[in-house]
Design a protein around this nucleic acid. Structure first.
Length: 432
DNA sequence: CCTTGACCTGGTCGT
DNA sequence: AATCGCAGGTCAAGC
């Protein structure tokens, strides 16, 4: 049974879901933003994957998908990796009113409702977290409304976050999409689509490969991914494919939903390339653990700087012990959805710095904010032919910015880091 | 326990 | 034009 929603249909209000923020903040790497502001991705329904488009229009978030029995049948044939002439594949979406089903029975609507966790009321959550943390969350969260935690497919989330080690959003996005192009199924070959009377050019779309497909390629995958520039992560991915395949594949991973946090974490960290941080990302963003808090160096800074966190041991760095203590700090503060709350809080910090760097800060501040942070949003879209992400035109008043956010980003400290790092580099050279 | 260093790569920054 | 430091970590090895 084919399922698609040919006309723009309301998903939720813009207040409940800020698309641009939610899809660029580093939790999903599979959405792409078109120049028109429309986002596209391929999502799985039982039996097949569908291309989905999202947009914000008239104060609401709308979706549509497209496809047709004829085009779907064609997609089951092997599809070349380069786009074919649009007319060869694309079938105009049906305008037949009978094809439009009520949203509550529309499988794509239900899929998106689940994916964006729309059963949570976001303003209510923000209010609760602001009450719990009046001095920080309440201060910064109004600047970044509408950030929802996604409930993503566990397999692609796992592999995406294995790629995230020692990496940045732009490159992770490229790697995840490379994985989809190499092993995933082509769901849409690319072409022109008629959207509300306007023709929109869409690139080919590939769905993230199934676990079965990856297991089939287990022996070659490390070499292939190294060739694609995955670096040492290629080995982790190949090993995790084999281990996960042996444990029961996708069913085993999805089966972790509904288990307790400790069990989920322990299950994940037995996979290669999955430490605590990656495990917490996967648990939080795909396995129904809204209390899981991924602690990275950035979060560590926030904890020690803004929340005056003092580790119980003499440890000066992020160790398993201090990791647990930071988690406990934020879980106590924010309650059951602490992971979600903390994500919003971190993203707020990130956005403040990005926007201030672009619009409002003095030259000194501009130079302190990390270049990669500035660049991340602009380069979120890996397709160089597409325009860069639009910056928010509203400058952020400097008076709203907590100056402490910049404490660890001062130029003299960067210089200091450079000088410290130099001897290490020389030592490594002697080996080569 | 905690600390340290290696690990791939690509875009950026400063000579 | 060539270089160097770095990025939202993980793992193994040595205290």
């Amino acid at each position: 049974m084919m399922a698609w929603t040919p006309n723009w249909t309301r998903l939720t209000s813009a207040a409940e879901l800020a698309l641009d923020r939610t899809l660029t903040c580093g939790q999903s790497f599979t959405w792409t933003r078109l120049p028109s502001g429309i986002w596209y991705n391929t999502l799985r329904l039982p039996g097949h994957a569908v291309p989905v488009l999202l947009r914000t229009h008239n104060d609401e978030v709308q979706f549509r998908s497209f496809g047709s029995p004829r085009s779907q049948a064609q997609f089951q044939q092997p599809v070349p990796k380069t786009p074919l002439p649009p007319t060869q594949y694309l079938v105009a979406p049906s305008r037949d009113p009978a094809a439009v089903v009520a949203p509550s029975h529309d499988p794509v609507y239900l899929l998106l409702h689940d994916y964006f966790q729309l059963s949570y009321s976001l303003p209510a959550l923000y209010l609760d977290w602001s009450t719990r943390d009046p001095s920080h969350f309440a201060h910064v969260s109004p600047l970044v409304p509408g950030i929802r935690l996604l409930r993503q497919p566990p397999v692609e989330t796992l592999f995406a976050f294995i790629c995230s080690a020692n990496n940045n959003i732009a490159r992770i996005t490229g790697m995840v999409q490379a994985l989809a192009m190499r092993y995933g199924e082509c769901v849409y070959p690319g072409g022109l689509l008629d959207i509300g009377g306007e023709e929109q050019a869409l690139p080919p779309m590939y769905v993230f490969p199934s676990m079965d497909r990856l297991v089939q390629s287990a022996d070659e995958i490390e070499g292939v991914l190294r060739g694609l520039g995955f670096g040492y992560r290629a080995k982790y991915i190949a090993a995790t494919v084999k281990t996960l395949g042996g444990l029961g594949g996708e069913a085993w991973l999805v089966g972790l939903r509904g288990k307790g946090y400790a069990e989920v974490r322990d299950a994940l960290v037995q996979l290669q390339g999955v430490g605590r941080k990656v495990a917490d990302c996967v648990a939080l963003m795909s396995l129904d653990q809204p209390g899981a808090i991924p602690v990275d160096t950035h979060v560590w800074q926030i904890a020690t700087r803004d929340y005056k966190f003092k580790p119980s041991t003499k440890s000066k760095s992020l160790t398993p012990t201090t990791y647990d203590e930071v988690v406990k700090l934020f879980q106590t503060l924010f309650g059951p959805e602490a992971g979600w709350a903390h994500s919003v809080r971190s993203i707020a910090c990130f956005f403040i710095i990005t926007r201030c760097a672009a619009f409002s800060l003095t030259r000194e501040h501009r130079s302190c904010s990390r270049p990669t942070w500035r660049a991340t949003l602009a380069t979120r879209n890996p397709n160089p032919r597409l325009p860069q992400l639009r910056q928010d035109p509203q400058p952020l008043p400097i008076s709203q910015v907590n100056p402490r956010l910049f404490q660890n980003q001062r130029p003299h400290q960067r210089r200091h880091q450079r000088e410290n790092a130099r001897p290490q580099q020389q030592r490594r050279r002697q080996f080569g």
